[in-house]
Design a protein around this nucleic acid. Structure first.
Lengths: 342, 342
DNA sequence: GGTTAGCACTCACCAAGCAAGAGTGCTAAA
DNA sequence: TTTAGCACTCTTGCTTGGTGAGTGCTAACC
């Protein structure tokens, strides 16, 4: 018995995996014989399947059931056997139309997650773009009433965040303008990490007698900068996972629980450099991800970057999902570059 | 056989419902006899239970199981039998501490949903405060680059929204200030519904030769006003529902599906005037809500208002949930009033 | 040596049958 | 009106036997 991969074994394995992806049921030798045009008998296929089983590519739930691909088989399928697919022209146009409506990165990523979840039937996650060094691009306030101002801050990556700030001591318009001017002068073009509490303290000293009145404003700025610094994670299509018959309800629950722990997820997504990567559940160390599969890409126009990911059952339609994800990533990258350059 | 409610029947019914809420299992006559201090025999209780069954308060899954309360029984329990509970001083303080950190209505409602979901084990929803007539309080822009400005808008209810706006024709600072001044002059103190496309058209005319350059700005303002006008719904603790053993996975799925349809939910929540209301699943017309129960309150300081709701299984711990919801509603109302007055 | 037909074998799946246990409804007496 | 006693019902869990899908193995064939 030669335990070596042959073209015919690959052909059998591919057919088996694709049928399994389609139905989720174990695949038998007779079905495979039909599928391959009756060029060989079911007995021959059984022999090959026996070898593939020893080689670790197939598994049988019990003696009298068909075979089921192992994670190792999916790995081979994804890396080598799978035929890449391209999205139809219509699908591409639709995606671009929807994405191009975005006026800022948050909207863009929101829409990207939504499209991915809708089209693939998986759960989709995205992170807002981060720079290696997130920069302060500009800060501005709006006077709402003597005691209330609203502040907004834009980063170098185009992310806009705003918040309300309450001022117990009712500063004058001049005092506010001075304070905001100072903030812009000190921090525009500098990294968000530079907005530290000591730096804010320092600024308060420079404000002299206005310090007391304007202190809440500077604190608000500090908090706003913190908010901008952390990547926002958007997830869509969690319900898709619940609907998926592959997931035992309890498994789905624990998976959703894991996905809600954002920090965990961010670490998963952020931990690689570029290109498309598929991580099968068993390859990660998370017990919650057993039986699942994650596809991650990174978009990175210029020096800013973020992640886009898909989470679905091990038995997902990789060809379609990957085509979809690759195209969306490419479009996001292009549109984001436009958004930032202008 | 006198089909009339007696104190003893109520006592039995209350004990039965509370035990059912605790365990979720049908309750038998022997257990109830123990619970009531063996003052009567199980046979007597069986007789009473038989009457309660005819009266529509109890149901038996099958002949040889104990009894289960019907929705009608829950209705009676909630309206009359249940002993109201008060939150502990510590719990109240904790809630207030967390809520008082909010600087604007969005933060406040976000936190309120979170606390409710954590403490009750149900799903919690809130809507951002709406005025009968949502007012424009102030609008401001921040110049980011020649072609990009960010705009923020605050409403009379204190809700702040911002968005990015792209200007292909690079207006001068003066042109922008004029346009924003015009927006403030025209719309501040007027309802959001007044920000219509014709009104925007009209403004463009007033801008004269600057109209072309500033048009995207006014369109952005229009869209921003639309965003402010629709109540934002926040839901937390969906996972709690999945974890709940009462829900058959498929039911949980369809319930979550229904809850994700925000507009449906908003209509449910908005459809009443004040006070606390409990809607049992069978009383609503939604098939997805069968087996569930919704508790809604309305907070309404001054002329603005919004809803807070809890969604859980029919067999939820009403006493605790209601105490929690009532206290949070009251706190939200108080804090919101402060936020707006200043 | 690789391929194939034939056949015994193994399990999951399903339905039927049976015993145990919980809780009830009914009756007759207190 | 309450209660003890008892027959009755119906779920639950377990076992049994039949069916079918799919396999592994062997012996013959190209």
């Amino acid at each position: 018995m030669a335990l070596v991969m042959t073209p015919r074994k690959e052909q059998i394995l591919t057919a088996l995996i694709e049928e399994y992806i389609r139905t989720g049921e174990p695949v038998g030798s007779k079905w495979l014989m039909d599928k391959m045009g009756n060029t060989v008998s079911s007995a021959t296929i059984r022999n090959e399947m026996a070898e593939l089983t020893v080689m670790g590519y197939l598994d049988q739930p019990h003696t009298s059931a068909g075979r089921v691909p192992t994670p190792q088989a999916f790995r081979l399928y994804i890396d080598k056997l799978m035929k890449k697919r391209r999205l139809s022209e219509a699908a591409r146009r639709e995606i671009d139309d929807r994405l191009e409506r975005a006026t800022d990165p948050d909207m863009l990523m929101e829409e990207a997650s939504q499209i991915l979840a809708e089209d693939t039937g998986c759960a989709a996650v995205t992170t807002t773009p981060q720079e290696q060094q997130m920069m302060v691009r500009r800060v501005e306030v709006m006077i709402v009433s003597p005691h209330v101002v609203a502040m907004m801050l834009m980063t170098g990556s185009g992310v806009l965040r705003s918040r309300v700030c309450r001022l117990p001591l009712a500063p004058t318009t001049e005092q506010l303008t001075t304070a905001v001017g100072l903030l812009n002068r000190c921090f525009v073009g500098r990294p968000l990490q530079a907005v530290t509490l000591p730096a804010i303290q320092n600024l308060l000293l420079q404000l002299g007698e206005d310090a007391l009145v304007c202190a809440p404003l500077l604190t608000a700025f500090h908090e706003l900068a913190q908010t901008c610094a952390e990547a926002e994670v958007r997830m869509k299509g969690q319900l898709n996972l619940l609907r998926n018959p592959d997931y035992h309800p309890e498994i789905a629950r624990s998976l959703l629980g894991f996905l809600t722990e954002q920090n965990q997820l961010v670490r998963m997504l952020a931990g690689h450099d570029g290109g498309l990567r598929v991580v099968l559940g068993n390859e990660s160390l998370q017990p919650e991800l057993m039986g699942s599969s994650i596809i991650v890409t990174r978009y990175a126009p210029h020096n800013i970057s973020g992640s886009i990911g898909l989470i679905g059952p091990l038995r997902m339609d990789y060809a379609t999902a990957i085509a979809e994800l690759e195209y969306i990533t490419q479009s996001v990258e292009r549109i984001l570059a436009q958004l930032i350059e202008e």
